[in-house]
């Protein structure tokens, strides 16, 4: 019963897009700097790991090591972009800049603000995918047949990590404590989600645990499948997992934030 109060469905207003617009405007002020990381990072990783470390790896499932990690790099970037936007970024706007306080003095309510922030977080992920897909394609590491689908998918994957991040933001006592989820949740996920080695080398129970509790595994699977140029029916289960988890965390993060800020 008492847990249900964290899953109340908010009545959102379309004005929440103005919050998205606010963040977009700030992003555009530093657009050059903001575009650099998603452009540079995949190149550095591919050079070091794909082509450096990769020379010691024969091939994985019929593809080169660089081809294997290229889609994972996109998935990781999707995760990082929205997770960090909606943890450190949102926390700064909420606590230090009092941006949320200013906005809720207008016809918007706190749930609108959070929804706008989450959509913006997902947009950051999409922007990263938008930059990375062509860069990686230029290395000839992805099949172009379905790769364009990675970009809209990045929005959904990004939304999931935005919502998860926002829950941490609502619960953290201070900005330093956000280092815990970053270290204990995001970093293991970066390493153990079938990113740099196939999940299948892990013991079977651990594989199931990873699929159940590490959202990145699903994102990696979808992006990798698309990057390999195939569309498999099994993607539906990953998509469903992501969709349902996103919805739950979307609602949860709003209720947690409301509890924190509206006293």
């Amino acid at each position: 019963m008492s847990y249900l109060q964290y899953f109340l469905i908010p009545e959102l207003d379309r004005r929440l897009l103005k919050v998205w617009l606010r963040n977009k405007d700030v992003f555009m002020k530093n657009i050059k700097l903001n575009f650099l990381p998603p452009f540079l990072e995949p190149i550095l990783y591919l050079l070091a790991m794909g082509f450096g470390l990769g020379t010691f790896v024969d091939e994985i499932g019929g593809v080169s090591y660089a081809q294997f990690i290229a889609p994972a790099l996109i998935a990781v970037s999707v995760m990082y972009a929205s997770f960090f936007e909606c943890t450190y970024g949102s926390y700064v706007r909420m606590y230090y800049q009092k941006t949320f306080d200013a906005i809720i003095a207008t016809p918007l309510i706190i749930e609108d603000v959070i929804a706008g922030e989450l959509l913006w977080g997902a947009t950051r992920s999409t922007i990263n995918a938008l930059v990375m897909v062509p860069v990686i394609a230029a290395f000839g590491l992805i099949d172009l047949k379905y790769s364009f689908l990675i970009i809209p998918f990045a929005f959904l994957g990004g939304l999931l990590f935005a919502c998860i991040g926002m829950c941490f933001t609502a619960m953290t006592p201070n900005i330093m404590a956000l280092n815990y989820p970053a270290l204990l949740f995001i970093t293991p996920m970066f390493l153990f989600s079938g990113t740099f080695f196939p999940l299948e080398v892990l013991p079977e129970p651990i594989q199931y645990l990873a699929l159940a509790f590490l959202p990145l595994t699903h994102i990696v699977r979808v992006i990798r499948t698309l990057a390999y140029g195939s569309l498999e029916l099994s993607l539906i289960s990953d998509l469903l997992w992501i969709l349902i988890a996103s919805m739950l965390f979307f609602i949860l993060s709003m209720n947690l934030m409301k509890k924190k800020l509206i006293v």
Partner: peptide, 19 residues
């Protein structure tokens, strides 16, 4: 609680959108 990411004009323009 002015928006430190914006100029004076941008603060007002941005806020006007919420209305």
């Amino acid at each position: 609680n002015l928006d430190p990411d914006f100029t004076v004009y941008e603060n007002l323009r941005n806020y006007s959108r919420y209305f």
